[in-house]
């Protein structure tokens, strides 16, 4: 008679084994890795570079300014004031206007976007976007696991149920972090301007922020995918919500310029907080109180959504 199996599975062992399985699958497939990076790269290249908002404020964009040859000015505006009317040269006047416009350009950009080039602004937005899509999509692998029978097999082993759920969340998070790193690196090659206050220590903050959003989002999507038998349903849902989530946030454009109703949405959208935190840590001069607010919100979001998501998945797995 064979002896009773003396080994007990642990949560960490199981969690790690299942996570490594997925990462291996993923890293074994460089094409897929590339595809996932290409999309934000296109966004960055086309939108980030083509929407050269900073260049809008250049004298050449003013077109022909119709200025009379002589411009009459009341003597009271002249320093020191004189009586009567004096005339200034029109050419000189238009030169002054052009110079002023060129000067206020960077100021306007800095006030609206915080940086003078739009490319840096939106590259960081792209990191948020890739974090969002990666975490959503990776929860979907559980649909395959179920359809192929892998999930049932795992469920018939004594591995703690939590390990099954957490492995998906962890896998999504690690993927998001890796992809964010790649995007940041590429953006730097293409001209992203890091702020002078940037240190390598900030990178830890970047990862922490990404981690929080990924954990929250992937738990919810896992709970959602685990119940669907086909891939189409979560896929449709994801493509339905990514667009609004991206535009109703500061990913591409500042919230301050949005209409009120959109601002209201953007202010509850967790993507706004991730994007802001990432910008604070990379391209902006760091504003500690804002950064702390961002992290508090992201932490709250992660705590609430992951507990809901994990609870729902758990209930499903032990049905």
């Amino acid at each position: 008679m064979s002896s009773v199996n003396e080994y007990h599975p642990s949560l960490i062992r199981g969690l790690w084994a299942l996570t490594v399985r997925e990462l291996k699958k993923w890293l074994n497939d460089p094409v897929m890795l590339l595809m996932l990076v290409i999309q934000p790269l296109i966004w960055m290249g086309l939108l980030g570079k083509s929407m050269n908002l900073g260049a809008m404020f250049s004298a050449s964009n003013l077109g022909e300014i119709q200025v009379p040859e002589k411009i009459p000015i009341p003597g009271s505006y002249v320093i020191p004031p004189t009586s009567g009317i004096i005339y200034v040269s029109g050419t000189m006047f238009s030169q002054i206007i052009q110079q002023t416009v060129s000067d206020i350009g960077p100021n306007v950009m800095r006030n609206i976007f915080g940086v003078t080039d739009y490319f840096s602004y939106m590259s960081i937005g792209m990191i948020s976007m890739i974090v969002m899509t990666t975490t959503m999509f990776s929860g979907m692998s559980i649909v395959w696991d179920r359809r192929l029978g892998f999930l049932d097999k795992v469920l018939s082993t004594p591995v703690p149920r939590g390990a099954i759920i957490f492995s998906k969340v962890l896998n999504a998070t690690l993927r998001a972090m890796l992809q964010a790193t790649i995007i940041l690196f590429l953006a730097m090659i293409f001209g992203l301007q890091l702020s002078p206050s940037f240190t390598l220590f900030n990178i830890l903050g970047v990862y922490a922020a990404i981690f929080l959003l990924s954990v929250g989002l992937s738990s919810v999507f896992l709970a959602f995918s685990i119940r669907s038998t086909r891939l189409e349903r979560p896929m449709q849902f994801i493509s339905l919500i990514t667009m609004p989530l991206m535009f109703a946030s500061n990913t591409l454009f500042p919230i301050s310029l949005m209409p009120d109703w959109l601002q209201a949405v953007a202010y509850v959208n967790p993507l706004s907080y991730l994007t802001d935190a990432l910008r604070q840590l990379t391209i902006l001069a760091l504003n500690p109180s804002k950064l702390i607010t961002d992290f508090i919100y992201l932490g709250f979001f992660a705590a609430v959504l992951s507990s809901i998501g994990i609870m729902l998945s758990w209930r499903y797995l032990s049905k």
Binding site: N5, Y7, H8, P9, S10, R13, G14, W16, A17, L18, R21, V154, T157, P158, V159
Partner: peptide
């Protein structure tokens, strides 16, 4: 090996 890990086998 993955199966072994799920059973907690060293």
């Amino acid at each position: 090996i993955l199966c072994g890990d799920l059973y907690g086998i060293p």
